[in-house]
Design a binder for these strands. Sequence first.
DNA 1: GAAAAAATTTAGAATAATTCTTGCTATCGG
DNA 2: CCGATAGCAAGAATTATTCTAAATTTTTTC
Lengths: 142, 142
Amino acid sequence: MLPATPTKRRKAAPADEQGGLRMTRQRQEVYETLLAHRDHPTATDVFLRVKDRLPNISLATVYNCLEVLVEHQLVRQVNFEREPSRFCPNLEQHGHFHDRGTGTILDVKFKKGVKLSDVLDLPPGAVVQDIEINLRGLLRTT
Amino acid sequence: MLPATPTKRRKAAPADEQGGLRMTRQRQEVYETLLAHRDHPTATDVFLRVKDRLPNISLATVYNCLEVLVEHQLVRQVNFEREPSRFCPNLEQHGHFHDRGTGTILDVKFKKGVKLSDVLDLPPGAVVQDIEINLRGLLRTT
DNA sequence: GAAAAAATTTAGAATAATTCTTGCTATCGG
DNA sequence: CCGATAGCAAGAATTATTCTAAATTTTTTC
């Protein structure tokens, strides 16, 4: 049944839209691929994985999907040095550890109750919107 | 097996070499440019500045010089997102704050006595060799 | 429900920072 | 001075990413 009295309504979000993001098939597959293997894949990695389920998807679409997922804060983009960006569906505030031995990237949680200003001498007047902490080193395999 | 008589002896460091780095004119000018304006220039910025003193220098040489300075730890390479790398002669451990308003990048000192392990839940066995902390936000100009 | 409008996808071209290649020059140790 | 090594310059090559234009799908409007 249609609503009785809509004269002019603001563009309603379609049923499959969540938080302003239209969850198309491609976006869904890209997102689910990230959730399935949380190994911080590059766009090309994601492309190759998604292709199994959507053989016609293009790399440009994967880039588009990743971009829109990042914009809508479902995914974080992780940059190490000048390497290709990697993508991560872990939304908690966290950093990354890059093992030079194997190339593995691990999430690093922040300890509870630690404030940035306890650790860093922030410039006066700085309003921090985004934090990125990247560690590099070796994983001693004991 | 090992030859009884050493056929090659260790290369002696030339007089103008410091810490294994031969300080050529180009490297010197690149380095001094970084010291003179500590505003985190890109390679192209450095190129344009050095050109005033060495009109024949090439961009490739600036890249080479920066690379070798970074390798020899006289300079740090700073990466924000996927933007061009920037270069910084501040050798103390520090992070960076990127002001979205003006594009300015400021050094952010670590508070004394803070250990990484106080703040982060490092993966077991992780030996951290390098830390990169990048903040993004706005500078409230009061 | 059909037509119009809007959003998304695709494939390939374009972009831009960086790296590589090649031939030349300078410097080093002997 | 000589041969060897390192560094430089110019331009070509590389490569992750973005852009463009056309096609397709979805949503809105009538």
